[in-house]
């Protein structure tokens, strides 16, 4: 897969604060890329620089073959951005909002109506077109925000915490749309999120801490490198679990035993067949990866 975003040695400071320090990473075309970090880690600064809203101090950014230093207009056409907070006009109708934003890309008249029809079908908001944007629910607003970001058919969709505060049904709808765009339109999705279960769906993850890359890899690679496995054991006596000399946690009806790897778990089970009659092995979660890499939990960072 070819690279669609290449960031090399990016630096940005605000006075004495180094928001981004020597940041380098690559995003492959068509992948779902998760960019993680607590608030203040440098995620939004990086996104703002990519979207030409902030000037970088140094470094290089190439998006879909276009160098940011050699002109931002082409890059702006390739990016669709869903901001953390909705920035559409509350007083206008959904139709008027999307019409004015489409015009920014030169999409007017019949071309706009055709695109609006496609998006309202994809995001299921045909019935909201005449409604005032400010009077929509959070989930409905989010759908329109995504439609705005997609109005000019960008190659890269940047989603800055798109599902924060949404109900499960709307979150599911949004994720269905993300999968649809990724699978059927080969769109690259650049995601920041505080939900680790969402990050674990990504093809590639970069964890940012204090403006620097702390870890990167696929969710599987990160889990393998930064967390161990768990054996959840049912119907066992605590003395037998203690005899394994491994750290464990007692829950209501089971014991959660920590092991360093799946191989170690397998060895222990094979050595103690009488004890392990009802059990399951699970890999560490992305939350554990994040905690292990940064020493912080995402909720703690907020």
């Amino acid at each position: 897969m070819e690279n669609i975003i290449e960031i090399s040695n990016l630096n940005k400071s605000f006075g004495d604060v180094h928001a981004v320090s020597d940041l380098s990473f690559i995003v492959k075309k068509g992948e779902l890329f998760a960019f993680l970090g607590v608030n203040g880690a440098g995620k939004s600064t990086t996104i703002n620089i990519m979207c030409t809203q902030l000037k970088k101090d140094s470094g290089k950014i190439i998006i879909d073959g276009c160098d940011l230093d050699k002109g931002s207009d082409k890059i702006k056409r390739r990016l669709g951005v869903v901001f953390q907070a909705s920035v559409l006009d509350n007083a206008l109708s959904v139709y008027d909002n999307l019409e004015s934003r489409a015009a920014l890309y030169g999409i007017t008249g019949d071309a706009f109506k055709k695109r609006l029809d496609e998006l309202s079908t994809l995001l299921k908001f045909k019935d909201l077109l005449k409604r005032t944007f400010g009077k929509l629910s959070g989930g409905q607003k989010r759908r329109i925000d995504i439609a705005r970001a997609l109005i000019h058919q960008p190659k890269i969709l940047v989603l800055d915490e798109p599902t924060t505060g949404l109900d499960p049904q709307t979150r599911k709808l949004i994720w269905d749309v993300i999968y649809e765009l990724k699978e059927n339109q080969q769109m690259t999705v650049f995601l920041t999120t505080h939900y680790m279960e969402e990050a674990s769906e990504a093809d590639y993850v970069v964890i940012l801490d204090n403006g620097k890359v702390s870890a990167k890899g696929t969710p599987h690679e990160l889990k393998t490198s930064y967390t161990g496995d768990y054996i959840t054991l049912y119907n066992a006596c605590e003395d037998n679990v203690k005899s394994l000399n491994l750290p464990y946690e007692k829950t209501k009806d089971s014991y959660k035993i920590s092991v360093s790897s799946t191989k170690e778990a397998t060895d222990i089970i094979l050595k103690n067949p009488a004890l392990f009659t009802d059990y399951e092995i699970t890999k560490g979660k992305m939350d554990d990866v994040f905690l292990s890499v940064t020493g912080k939990s995402l909720t703690e960072g907020n």
Binding site: S72, K74, F83, V87, R101, L104
Partner: peptide
């Protein structure tokens, strides 16, 4: 003030 300007200037207008 409400961030809408950002939404306008991320476009190539």
């Amino acid at each position: 003030a409400n961030g809408t300007a950002k939404d306008l200037t991320i476009s190539p207008v």
